[in-house]
Design a protein around this nucleic acid. Sequence first.
DNA 1: TGTATATATGATCGATTACTCATATATGGA
DNA 2: TCCATATATGAGTAATCGATCATATATACA
Lengths: 102, 102
Amino acid sequence: MNTAADFQADIFSAVAHPNRIRILEMIRYGINCNCEIAPELGMEQSNLSRHLKILVKSGVLRSWKEGLRTNYEIADKRIYKLLDIAADIAKAKLEKQTEVFA
Amino acid sequence: MNTAADFQADIFSAVAHPNRIRILEMIRYGINCNCEIAPELGMEQSNLSRHLKILVKSGVLRSWKEGLRTNYEIADKRIYKLLDIAADIAKAKLEKQTEVFA
DNA sequence: TGTATATATGATCGATTACTCATATATGGA
DNA sequence: TCCATATATGAGTAATCGATCATATATACA
């Protein structure tokens, strides 16, 4: 049986990789094609493809084909909220850490 | 070098496990001792201890000893916000899925 | 139809994760 | 001091993850 915690964990697992977070940020700012993401992130094409697949399979992204290209969009805008909050938490942690040297 | 995405990914990795999410929910509602969490979640003691260690190491939880017990508290309340948003996203996904049968 | 381009996937491999059992450590109380 | 209790950890193992290389597929276009 799948409990709420299982679904939540699936979402977190999907975004629990630096490159997947970077991919989502690029899509957030309008870049929604494989061909533009790969060179920007310096990722091997096959590797990028697999990361995108993980994001689609987990339901974080939706994808559709347009000719040769595969385009992506966020399935639920609240995913960005998750990224923002995590960024805030990380920022607070870093500031607390550097206080020592102030 | 550690980028923002690395820190965000670390936070998501820490909460990317159903039992760790359940642990956080228990701490959220006032249960902050190993000895009460283990039986409630039906986890082996050593397994629980390791999950708690992951949460502390990642900075999600803070811990302190009090006699025999080790107590835990959330390090940043925004972690709960992450859990709530993920729960909302999961809920929306489930509803969309069951629409088919409506 | 042949070729270039964009994306996907099979196979492989090393690293990491989650779990369990057994044992160690550390504290409190008889 | 001895024992019970709470927690931590070493060792072992199966499963999963992330990356890469090579290759397959699928579409557009000359």
